[in-house]
Amino acid sequence: MYNAHQSLLHQTVLVLGGASGIGAAVARQARARGARVIVASRQAVSPGEGIEACVADITDTRALQALFSGVGTVDHLVISAGPAVQARPLAQSDLQLAREAFEVKFWGALQAIQLALPHLSAHASISLTSGLLSRKFVAGQMIKTTLNAALEALARQLAKELAPRRVNVVSPGLTETEAYAGMDAESRQAMFARAGAGLPVGRVGAADEVAAGYLLAMENGFMTASVIDIDGGGLI
């Protein structure tokens, strides 16, 4: 009988970019469902009870090779690593920064998947992370829009190529995470309040709410090439 609380029992979940925020929430929820969970990030972290941690930069080929070799067979690969990208109109954009963003979030993800292939189980799932700006066009957000759209296209292509392994994308809206820790608390809360007021749900998201989308992609064996929007209605 299906047991939601043990749905990932005896399965291995590897989260690239799991040090904090959404990735860390995915790791906690997968662990609660019985999985062996490993998080990998650029810096050493203490991810929580029962969760293994490794240091590996997603752009570092040798570090990723060592990571996959050490982990063994992976049943679910989650990639949530991504750089901070500031909004800029094209005329004021530093295209080198745009290239660096693609190097991490797009090329880093593609390299990680390629290196993971020999270690993925026959029916493994891969979950990528985009964002609502892939399909919501906002002036000044050229980099995020093109980067996230590229990831969604990549996922659909790989879902075809890597079948029966499954490839999906979670597309979050604005989510309250440590990514905004650089702002002072008052400014951060004011920003969240303004953004939330413009959404049908009336607030921004929480990391655990977005993480639930990745668990859906892991657990639902009939889901592939899907973009899972968890954005509080931000696309409408």
Rank of each mutant, 00 (worst) to 15 (best):
L8G: 08
L8I: 06
L8T: 05
L9Q: 15
L9I: 13
L9K: 15
H10Y: 04
H10M: 11
T12A: 04
V13M: 10
V13G: 06
V13C: 13
L14D: 04
L14E: 06
L14Q: 06
V15L: 08
L16M: 13
G17V: 00
G18Q: 04
G18L: 02
G18D: 06
A19T: 00
A19I: 01
S20D: 11
S20T: 13
G21V: 09
G21M: 12
G21A: 12
I22A: 05
I22N: 02
A24N: 08
A24P: 03
A24W: 00
A25R: 00
A27S: 05
A27L: 02
A27Y: 01
R28M: 08
R28A: 15
R28F: 02
R28H: 14
Q29F: 01
Q29W: 01
Q29C: 03
Q29G: 03
Q29S: 09
A30T: 03
A30G: 12
A30Y: 00
R31E: 07
R31Y: 05
R31L: 10
A32L: 09
A32F: 01
A32M: 08
R33Y: 05
R33F: 03
R33M: 14
G34H: 04
G34L: 11
G34N: 09
A35K: 00
R36H: 10
R36F: 01
I38N: 01
I38W: 14
I38A: 00
A40W: 08
A40E: 10
S41Q: 04
R42V: 01
R42A: 02
R42Q: 13
A44L: 14
A44M: 13
A44E: 15
A44W: 06
A44S: 15
V45N: 10
V45Y: 02
S46G: 08
S46L: 12
S46A: 15
P47W: 03
P47D: 05
P47Q: 04
P47N: 04
G48F: 09
G48S: 07
G48A: 09
G50L: 12
G50C: 12
G50E: 10
G50K: 09
G50T: 09
I51K: 03
E52W: 05
E52Q: 14
A53D: 13
A53Y: 10
A53W: 07
C54T: 00
C54D: 01
V55S: 06
V55H: 04
V55K: 05
A56K: 12
A56E: 13
I58S: 00
I58H: 00
T59R: 15
T59Q: 15
T59S: 12
T59I: 10
T59M: 12
D60P: 12
D60T: 05
T61K: 14
T61C: 09
R62P: 01
R62N: 14
R62D: 15
R62T: 14
A63T: 11
Q65P: 03
Q65E: 15
Q65H: 02
